[in-house]
Design a protein around this nucleic acid. Structure first.
Lengths: 214, 214, 214, 214
DNA sequence: AATGAATGAGCATTCATTCAT
DNA sequence: TATGAATGAATGCTCATTCAT
C-alpha cells in the first residue's frame, strides 16, 4: 500500500505519533499547504525518516485518510449494530455527529478536504476508500427498515441512503468546517445555549426525515 | 473590491477572457496549484497585466468566486420568480441542476473548492458571499409554501431550507466534482442511458422531499 | 546631456515639478528602490511622459543630481564671495550647514547616496560633477587665506582643502542622514536644546580647525 | 542573531566561504543589486542552503556587516593597545588605512554602502553596530592624550574624537571607493609613485591634526 | 506631446525530495 | 535505521521600459 515496510515495523506508538502529526497538518492547512518539515517536527522525527516511512507526501496523505476512515466509521456502528427503529437510529447518529464533529474537527476538515480534492485520481480513490462502507451500511439499514415496515416500501433504498447520508455529511461539516459553520449560521443563528440549538437541530431533522416537507 | 480600476476599465470582452481563464485554472487545479502564468497564457495577456488587474493571486480568486455566484444563482430564480407549488419548483430545480452542473462543471468545482477552503478568513468570506442569497431565497420560498398550505406548518422554515439546500448542493457536486460523482456511483450505478438515471433521481428525490422516509 | 529636448522645452514649472518629485523619490528610497511610477504620480505626469523627458531611469537620476549640485553649492558662496578671515567664513559655513542640512535633508540624502554609488561609471561621474567646484573653491579660499596670512604657509592648500571639505561633508550628513545622525549621537548626545548643541559644535570645530589637537 | 543554528554548526571553512561570497557580492553590487543566486554560486552552495543559513537576504547582509566590523576594528587596536604619543598613533593609523583600505576595498565599499543605507531602521542599526566601539576608543584615546598633556585640554574629547574619526573614515573611503577615490584626485592628483603620494598624505594630515590651519 | 496599459525578464523565496554520514 | 543538511526547480510578484491610442 502507501506506507513502507519500515513504517509497518515501527513501534505502534511511533506510527501513531507520525500519523497524528500528519493528520493535524493536513487538516489544518490542506494537502497543498501542509509541510513535510512541520509534520516531522510535530512527530518528533526527522524529514529523512518521513521519507523512509512513505515514498511521497501524497502517499502519506493517502494513508492518513485511509486510517482516518476507521475513526469516522464509528458513527456507522449505530446503524449496523442495533435493531432499533430507523428514526431512533437517526436521532442517535445526529446527536453523535454533533458530539463527534465538534470533538474531532480536524478529522472532519480532513474529510472535507478530501471531498474537494482536485486531482481526479486522488478524488476517485478517496471516494471509494471513504464512501464504500457508508454506502453499503446506509443502504442495508434502509433495506432492513423497509423490511421491518419502518420505512415505506415505495422508495429506492440505495438512493434514499444517498440522500440520508448526504444530509449527515453536510451536518458533520456544519459543526467542524469553517465554510459550513458559517453557512449554517446563515440559516439558523447561533444560540447562547448550544444545547438548545442542538436539540432543535435533532428535532427538526427528524421531522423532515420522517414526513418530508408535505 | 478586489479588482483594480484598470480591470474595471477593460473592454468587457477582455475582462471575460481573463475571468474565464482564471476560473478554469482555479477550478481545474485548485487555488494552490493554479499558476498565474497559466492564467495569463490562457487569457492571452502577460503576467504583468494580471497584476495590474488584481493585486494578488488571492484577490483574483476572490473575484472569480464573486463573479461565479451570479451564475450559480440562476438556479434560484426558479424558486423566486414563479408561483408554482413548491414540489413543482423542486422538480424544476433538480432538472436544472442536472443540466447546469454537467454543463458548468468547472463552476461547480470552484464552488466545491471554496467550501473546503482551509483559511478561516477566506472560508467565512466565501460562505457569506455565496450562501447569503440562497439562505434568504430558500427560506422565503418555504415560508410562502407554508402560507399556501403546500408545506406543513409544523416545521421550521429556515432549518428545512437548510436541509433542502444541502441536498441540492450535494446533488450539484454529484454531477460535476470527481469525489461526489464517484460517491453517487457507489449508491446509484451509472446507467447506459443517462436520461433514465436522471429521471430516476428526480422521481426519488421528490418522493423523499414530499413524504420523507416513513 | 541626460534629458531630452522635450524636457527642455517644457514649461519651467513642469520641469521643476518633475525634478522635485524625482529628487524626493531618489533621496527617500535610494536609486535602486526609487520607482518611476511613483515619480510620475508625484509629479502629476504619466510614466510615458517621464520616458519622453529622459531615456532611462539612470538619466533622470544623473540629471537630478546635476541639478541638485547648484543648490548644494550655495554653501560655497560663503567662501568665494566675501573677504572675511577664513575662520569667520568657516563659522558661517558651519552654521549654514546646520540650517541647510536640516532644511534640505532630502538633498543631503541624495548627496550621500551618490557618494556610495556602486557603479564605477556613475560614481566617477558624480564625483567630478559634484566635487570639482568644491575642490576648486576650497583650494582657492585656502590659498587666499595663506596669502593674507590667515593660514600658515607651510601646509599644502589643496590637501588641507580636502580635509576641510571632508569635515564639512561629514557634518552635513550628520544633520540629515540616518546613519550619520546616529553616529554623531554616539559621540555627542543630543541635548534638549538644539541651539546649545549647535553652538557647541561650532565652537569646538573652530577650535579644532584653528589649532588642531595640540 | 541573524544567522540560523544550521549556519553556526557549519564547518568554519564553509561559513567563511559563504560570508566571503556574500561580502563580495554586496560590496560589488550594493545590497539591492546583490543576487542570492550569485552568492550561492560563488560560495559553491545551493540557493536553498543559503536560506537554511539565513532567513532572508537582509539577515545575511546584516550578518556580513556584523562580521566585517571585527576586521575593520583592527585599525582601532593601534589606538588602544600602545602607549605612544597620540600623533605617533595617528601616523600609524593613517599608514595602516592606506595599506588596509587598498587591500580590503570590498570591505570598505561595504562600509560605505552601509553608511548610505536609506532604510532608517537598518541605518540606525548599522551605525550602532559599527560605530559604537570606534566612538568609545577614539574618545578614550583623546582623553588619555589630554591627561598625558599630548593634546590641549581645552577641547572636548568626544567631539574631537568625532572629528578625528570623520577624517579617518573619509580617508579610508578615499583609497577604496569609487566616488571618494575620484574626489581625492580632484584635490591631490595621483602621482606616478604611489609611495610619494602616501607619504605626502601622512605628512600633511599630521600637520593639520597637530596645529590646525592657523 | 501625453497617456497609461502592456510587457516579460528578473529575483527572492519555498519546499518536496535526496543523500552522505 | 535515523538524521538533517543540501538541492534546485518552481512560482508569485515587481517594475523599467515600450507602444498603441
Amino acid at each position: 500500500m502507501h506506507m513502507t515496510d519500515t513504517f509497518q515495523n515501527l513501534p505502534a506508538e511511533k506510527q501513531a505519533r507520525v500519523l497524528r502529526a500528519a493528520g493535524d497538518e493536513f487538516a489544518r492547512h490542506g494537502y497543498e499547504n501542509a509541510k513535510m518539515s512541520e509534520i516531522a517536527a510535530a512527530a518528533g522525527v526527522s524529514v529523512g525518516s518521513l521519507y523512509k516511512y512513505f515514498d511521497h507526501k501524497q502517499d502519506m496523505y493517502l494513508h492518513v485518510i485511509h486510517r482516518s476512515i476507521a475513526e469516522m466509521e464509528q458513527l456507522l456502528t449505530i446503524l449496523s449494530t442495533t435493531k432499533d427503529d430507523i428514526l431512533l437510529k437517526a436521532e442517535r447518529i445526529i446527536r453523535e455527529i454533533q458530539r463527534f464533529s465538534r470533538g474531532n474537527s480536524l478529522l472532519m476538515k480532513l474529510y472535507s478536504g478530501a471531498t474537494a480534492q482536485n486531482d481526479p485520481e486522488m478524488a476517485a480513490y478517496f471516494a471509494r476508500e471513504i464512501e464504500t462502507t457508508s454506502a453499503r451500511i446506509y443502504s442495508q439499514a434502509i433495506r432492513e427498515a423497509q423490511a421491518a415496515g419502518d420505512i415505506r416500501p415505495d422508495i429506492d433504498p440505495d438512493f434514499s441512503a444517498f440522500l440520508l447520508h448526504s444530509l449527515f455529511m453536510m451536518l458533520q461539516f456544519s459543526y467542524a468546517c469553517e465554510y459550513h459553520k458559517e453557512r449554517l449560521k446563515l440559516y439558523v443563528p447561533e444560540e447562547t445555549r448550544e444545547n438548545t440549538r442542538d436539540d432543535f437541530v435533532v428535532e427538526q431533522m427528524l421531522k423532515f426525515l420522517k414526513n418530508g416537507l408535505r
